[in-house]
Simulated scan of single mutants.
Amino acid sequence: MYLYVYEGYQGGREGRQRTEELVRRAAERYIYEERLNLGTVSGRILRTERGKPYFQEVPIEFSVSHTGSLWVCLMDTGTVGVDVQEIRGCRREKIAERYYTADEREYVQSRGESGFFQIWARKEAYAKYTGDGFTERLRSFSTLKDTSVEFIDFDVCAGIKGSCCMKEKRELWIRQIV
């Protein structure tokens, strides 16, 4: 499983087009690094009814996230989800009370702001993994206790928390793309 990182991302109007270019670049590199015999990634990136992106003709799963100028894309042959969150000021107690389970709120109390954003990245990664988005089910889903999925937490750079969600834990390789 590979996490491709791009620094200097700018969203806005061109954000979706730029994301598709970066996803294709990451996919080409993934195919090369995994020595997969899949050819090139040339087709459009499609989306499910709920917005989960996928390749029509290439059997690679991917998930994308960005925060500030950091963009990441997780690639694997199995279903995956990824999220990155820049640590910033917010009403974390109020958000945690609304969206976190009791054990997650306890985790945030013991770890503070960093713990809050780690759980938030896990929740978002899980939502992308399932393809359901951020639904009511996430309020009762514990990213600390549920064993139906695995998480790998990572820090790409200072002040940013990240998490990957997958069915079974795998080794995570982080690569820069330019």
Rank of each mutant, 00 (worst) to 15 (best):
L144M: 10
V82S: 06
R122M: 15
R137Q: 14
E93P: 05
S63M: 04
Y54M: 07
C157V: 13
T147H: 11
T67Q: 01
I119F: 03
S148E: 12
E113L: 14
G131D: 04
L38I: 04
Y129V: 00
C165E: 02
W71C: 05
E150M: 10
S142N: 05
K167H: 09
R98E: 09
R35N: 14
G89N: 09
D83H: 03
L74Q: 05
E86C: 13
F154V: 15
D153V: 03
F117A: 01
G68E: 00
I60G: 01
R47E: 09
E34D: 00
F141N: 05
R105K: 15
V80Q: 08
G162T: 04
Q56M: 09
C164Y: 01
I152F: 02
I152V: 13
Q85V: 10
T135D: 09
S114M: 07
F116H: 05
V156T: 08
G43I: 05
Q118P: 07
E106G: 07
R139D: 11
F117P: 03
T48P: 13
I31A: 02
A121Y: 09
F151V: 08
Y54R: 07
E61I: 00
R122K: 15
V149C: 08
A121Q: 10
R105N: 04
V108T: 11
K94A: 14
K52R: 13
E136S: 15
L138N: 13
T48Y: 03
Y99E: 10
E57R: 13
S148K: 14
G81V: 05
Y30Q: 01
E136Q: 15
G159H: 03
R44S: 14
L138E: 02
K167C: 07
L144W: 06
C164P: 04
F55D: 00
S63Y: 04
R137D: 15
